[in-house]
Design a protein around this nucleic acid. Structure first.
Ligand SMILES: Nc1ncnc2c1ncn2[C@@H]1O[C@H](COP(=O)(O)OP(=O)(O)OP(=O)(O)O)[C@@H](O)[C@H]1O
Length: 676
DNA sequence: ATATAACGTCTTTTT
DNA sequence: GACGTTATAT
């Protein structure tokens, strides 16, 4: 059943191998089976390292390998691998090995407090955050920044904040997501460690290689430098993470890094019907910057790709739901942005159709969960300002921004740990200006933390610590203040307790797992309908796929105008997930910033070759104006489109201008008409 | 100095 | 339509 190229890849033993292959050609399947083959050939499973980009992909591969071989192979994300290496060796760069991992929210809070401490304008927060992340992804530490190119005001702020932020992270005994790669790569550059880890895994396999960024690339390169048994698979057309530093060039330059590598191409698609595959190919061919591929399928022709142009969002949604109700199948709805899931959720709940959402806010990012974890974190950490500032005012104790800032300044001056300072404040009088009430509740808070610590000394069962916390604090009462959400939050807390009760490992491990695990497999039951962003759909496949919200401006997204090819790749990824049926929908009106606005079909709909498409709506697939659209022209004023037709010059409109009371013919390319 | 209510603002995508 | 910021009351 394998084709020859697949066979060659699976049987490959030593030396570097690159597989470049299109969607649905069996890349992931080949990686999995090659691992099984290595084990069959007598390679110890502990010598093998498999790397993926999402926890879900890692778990899936682990499960499939276990099915095939009954062995437990270390398959993880780059980030989890980083966490593992850092736990063992981070002390070499003066961190403690029991560090905690800050998620996106925590690091943003910390960065914000850095801005406040250094009195910087917070409007640059986002810029600096991106800049720090970018630097770490490119393995540039704050000592090594090339200052010459940084001349703007926001860059000066970045220059000041980056080292400060890094120092504060260390003070909190924490690393952020980017550090998991950045610090790991730095560690691996140290000779003695490098040699240790190079011996640890003698066969390395990487899936979705087109999405490696520089730090991941460096990790992979160093780890396999000695034995050169590196096996990577990827598809440049599916590179969709350039915004977080991914370079698909890594795949094209693989043969430079690993001389004499073997290269295998897989060109047969085993997933999609002819129509779906050819439609997808016809779209991706619009990318200029790309190597041509010859991807084919022997599967049935199947149905044409269905395009539906709805008059408004509600009708778009109704269309999808109606199709879903027709029969029970393995289905998914994809969208460009998380916010788009809302309308669908509303209807699905109303119609009692079971569904599951991937991504967006994961279980562990919910407020109530993070609050409790922050309290627990204070048991084992003495200087985590983020957990402290998160919990100090829960429930409200009248300690806000200003007091916290003063607190921080005092801490800086006295060079004390957080809790030493707390005790000092309670003992000595006029250290800090606080009211009697504030002081009382502050003391209450501290005593809660110390009681938790005492309890932890005697009892390390995480579920029991949480129960003890709930019993001894007013946290639940605080949640009851919002009765609408209380029930749900309480249920989530119960879920957390359940998780804690069955968890094997200490509190540190518990935190690590929870921070790195963004998806909660808790609810992974047999839901046939799945909702997710297209980014989240990578690597998956479904019988029927709906890609919704295909409006110009939403997909391709307004903010990605200069990354149009990546948007197109994203669309390609989404389309190629479908096995049997593919629906692409858009709406002519869309709610944006609280107002309903006119929207137009995405250019991608137009770019797909008509041969493979069936339009289910009355409307033509056009991403310009329709008859009766109101438009604005800067000389002629406001008008109404009366006729749309094609001339030698392309799309042409007859527009009736109110002011002049006459019709003018305008050529789309030249007349700069705007929607009005 | 904090808590709350009203106001204005701008939305990508993830580990 | 969520979010953060600012004005106002406490
Ligand atoms: N030789 C084969 N015979 C039959 N089915 C196959 C064969 N190879 C792969 N497949 C099937 O094709 C589908 C796609 O495989 P897989 O997910 O591994 O592809 P992929 O290249 O990783 O896809 P993508 O890059 O689009 O995520 C799977 O359902 C797989 O079982």
């Amino acid at each position: 059943m394998w084709n020859n190229d697949q066979k060659k890849a699976i049987k490959h033993m030593e030396g570097p191998l690159l597989i470049v292959a299109g969607a649905g050609s069996g890349k992931t399947k080949v990686v999995t089976n090659r691992i099984a083959h290595l084990i069959d050939e007598g390679i110890p499973s502990t010598d093998i390292l498999g790397l993926t980009f999402t926890n879900k992909a890692a778990k899936e591969m682990r499960d499939r390998v276990e099915e095939l071989t009954k062995e437990d192979v270390f398959i993880s994300t780059f980030h989890s691998l980083g966490a593992k290496i850092l736990r063992e060796s981070i002390y070499k760069i003066e961190y403690k090995t029991n560090f905690s991992i800050f998620d996106e929210e925590d690091s943003l809070r910390l960065l914000k407090s850095c801005f406040r401490s250094l009195k910087k304008e917070e409007k640059y927060l986002k810029y600096v955050k991106a800049k720090i992340s970018q630097s770490k992804n490119n393995l540039i530490s704050y000592e090594n920044i090339n200052k010459d190119s940084l001349i703007s005001k926001k860059d000066f702020i970045f220059l000041e904040i980056y080292p400060f932020y890094q120092k504060k992270l260390k003070e909190c005994n924490a690393v952020d997501f980017d550090d998991l790669l950045f610090l790991t790569a730095l560690l691996l550059e140290k000779k003695e460690l490098r040699e240790t880890y190079q011996k640890r895994w003698s066969f390395i396999l990487i899936d979705e290689y087109q999405d490696t960024n520089f730090s991941q690339y460096t990790m992979a390169k160093i780890l396999s430098e000695k034995h050169k048994n590196i096996f990577v698979v990827g598809d440049p057309d599916q590179s969709i993470y350039s915004w977080r530093g991914a370079r698909y060039e890594n795949i094209l330059e693989f043969d430079k890094d690993f001389k004499n590598c073997s290269i295998i191409k897989l060109e047969q698609n085993y997933r999609s019907s002819q129509n779906i595959l050819l439609a997808s190919n016809s779209l991706i061919e619009h990318n200029q910057n790309r190597y041509k591929k010859n991807l084919f399928s022997y599967l049935d022709e199947g149905e044409k790709v269905k395009i539906f142009i709805a008059e408004d969002e509600k009708l778009e949604c109704d269309f999808v739901i109606k199709k879903i109700l027709e029969q029970d199948k393995e289905r998914a709805i994809f969208y460009r942005t998380n916010a788009q899931s809302r309308i669908f959720e509303d209807i699905l709940i109303k119609k009692k159709i079971p569904y599951i959402i991937y991504g967006s806010i994961s279980f562990y990012q919910r407020k109530e969960i993070k609050d409790i974890l922050a309290f627990l974190n204070l048991i084992i950490s003495d200087d985590d300002f983020i957990s402290f500032s998160r919990t100090i005012n829960l429930p409200k104790r009248g300690i806000g921004k200003t007091t916290l800032l003063k607190f921080l300044e005092l801490k800086e001056k006295n060079n004390l740990s957080l809790f030493s300072l707390c005790q000092k404040i309670l003992k000595e009088k006029n250290l800090i200006k606080i009211t009697k009430k504030q002081k009382e509740s502050f003391s209450e808070y501290l005593s809660l933390i110390f009681r938790l610590r005492d309890f932890y000394e005697k009892n390390k069962h995480i579920d029991e610590i949480i129960l003890y916390f709930l019993k001894n604090s007013d946290y639940l009462d605080y949640l009851k203040e919002d009765p609408d959400t209380y029930e749900e939050r309480k249920e989530n807390i119960d879920e957390l307790i359940k998780k804690a009760a069955t968890f094997e490992g200490d509190l540190y491990k518990f935190f690590e797992e929870i921070t790195l695990l963004t998806t909660n497999e808790v609810s992974e039951k047999k839901y046939s309908l799945k909702l997710m962003t297209i980014h989240n759909s990578k690597g998956l496949e479904f019988d029927e796929v709906f890609i919704v919200g295909m409006d110009e401006g939403l997909f391709p997204h307004e903010n990605c105008k200069d990354e149009i090819e990546e948007e197109r790749r994203l669309c390609y990824v989404g389309m190629t997930r479908a096995k049997k049926k593919l629906y692409l929908t858009c709406s002519l009106k869309r709610f944006l910033h609280g107002k309903e606005r006119i929207a137009r079909p995405s250019r991608f709909l137009k770019e797909i070759s008509k041969k493979y498409v069936e339009n289910l709506s009355e409307r033509e697939i056009r991403n310009s104006f329709y008859v009766e659209d109101r438009v604005f022209h800067k000389t002629f004023g406001i008008g109404v489109v009366k006729r749309v037709y094609n001339t030698f010059y392309g799309d042409t409109y007859d527009v009736f201008f109110e002011e002049e009371n006459q019709i003018r013919s305008l050529i789309a390319k030249y007349a700069k008409l705007e929607k009005y």
